[in-house]
């Protein structure tokens, strides 16, 4: 049997009150406390202090998890929010260049400069925008066909 000193026994009192001691140590402590009025007094005081401890609110873990997730979610959205203007500008540029290709081709003035081809608007819908090849030399036509091949 271990004979405990009071100082050793007192070191176990609060863990004993919280129910954290192993059986053999608990038994030793009980034995000491039974014989020692000083330690018994301190044990009673610690028991009274322990019942004063506040209960943890039941909703707390849920609230913490929500708050943590919100923080993480916000961090992610603000990351995207920072990227958003750049993304918008890129989209605008890409769509503008596409619009240019879709709506303004063929660009008549450019065609005129590059291919010495006469293109003009016509009241005739069949001819509108199409190339008129009547007055072309053999050489010019060959060059043109090379370009559009």
């Amino acid at each position: 049997m271990i004979i405990w000193e009071c100082i050793e026994a007192k070191g176990y009192l609060s863990a004993g009150v919280r129910g954290e001691l192993s059986e053999p140590i608990k038994a030793e402590l009980d034995r000491h406390v039974l014989d020692c009025s000083d330690c018994r007094g301190e044990l009673e005081l610690i028991e009274k202090l322990f019942v004063l401890r506040p209960a943890t609110p039941l909703q707390l873990p849920l609230e913490i998890k929500k708050a943590v997730r919100l923080e993480f979610f916000e961090a992610e959205t603000s990351y995207w929010r920072k990227l958003l203007p750049a993304a918008a500008v890129t989209t605008l540029l890409v769509s503008a260049s596409l619009l240019d290709k879709v709506l303004f081709l063929p660009d008549i003035s450019l065609l005129e400069q590059d291919f010495f081809v006469n293109v003009w608007p016509s009241e005739d819908y069949d001819l509108a925008g199409s190339l008129v090849l009547d007055d072309f030399s053999e050489e010019s036509l060959n060059l043109l066909f090379e370009e559009i091949k």
Binding site: L60, E63, A67, V68, E71, F72
Partner: peptide
């Protein structure tokens, strides 16, 4: 306590 965990994970 809430702030504590937000800061822990942040």
């Amino acid at each position: 306590c809430q702030n504590c965990f937000v800061n822990v994970f942040k």
